[in-house]
Design a binder for these strands. Structure first.
Lengths: 129, 129
DNA sequence: CAGGATCCCCAAAGATACTG
DNA sequence: CAGTATCTTTGGGGATCCTG
């Protein structure tokens, strides 16, 4: 297998520095539930709270709320509440969030494709130990 | 708001399912230090333990060791120890790891570009509250 | 229905010291 | 230099109850 051209993308050292803003954003975006929420919304359709809860299987109400608030504060997700009863709230990606999602989808795609092989290897390694 | 080309990538539901292998890999790869290690190695050059420690600013010895072991078990990072004294150990991406890194670099690039604006927004939102 | 407020806890992270 | 071993700490996250 040919390893495509040497990556050689040099990040400004800042990315690795502990007080760089990237660290904060990176943490939000790569948080366990943040990733799943963004990916769920990446399909295009706005989703309601309860739909998101089902989609990100295993998320608690607290963590979903927390995740959504963080992503909203970061301007990645928009919240649209319609003043009806019972309440109807929809979440969607903002333009900025969509840009991010575009770069996240190929990653997730690759992971979904290779995950079985990867965990297989990990288990084999564990058995040898 | 026009959402750039309809993303519309539908993941097999499995990705969102709590017992899908993807979840495990996703957690390893998006872990705080896992991301930084992969990105550091994505520049192409193999790196030594101490170089990685400096690169991923703030990482403890314990977490670096743990992260490297996990990534190695996943077949994403290779470890090459030369039997000299003092010890000389180099870490590099495997072919599989490089494929992954290729998909991670654009994401990190985007984050590095937009992080300042994003945390700016978040702070503004916090102030308004 | 869509959350907010609380209490609680344990796995995971950090710090420190030691060693092949 | 490149780790392991051990101890301590913390905050992420779960469970539960409540309300607009």
């Amino acid at each position: 297998m040919t390893v495509s051209p040497p990556l050689r993308r040099h990040f400004p050292d800042g990315v690795f520095s502990s007080d760089c803003p990237s660290r904060v954003v990176l943490d939000h975006v790569t948080s366990k539930w943040g990733t799943l929420v963004i990916l769920a919304l990446a399909e295009g359709e706005p989703l309601r709270w309860s739909e998101l809860r089902r989609r990100a299987e295993g998320v608690s109400e607290k963590m979903l709320a927390q995740t959504l608030r963080t992503l909203e504060a970061d301007g990645l997700v928009s919240r649209h509440a319609r003043p009806v009863v019972p309440p109807h709230v929809e979440y969607a990606l903002t333009a900025r969030g969509s840009e991010l999602a575009e770069r996240m989808v190929p990653l997730m795609d690759w992971i979904a494709d290779h995950a079985p092989a990867i965990v297989g290897d990990a288990e084999a390694a564990a058995a040898t130990r």
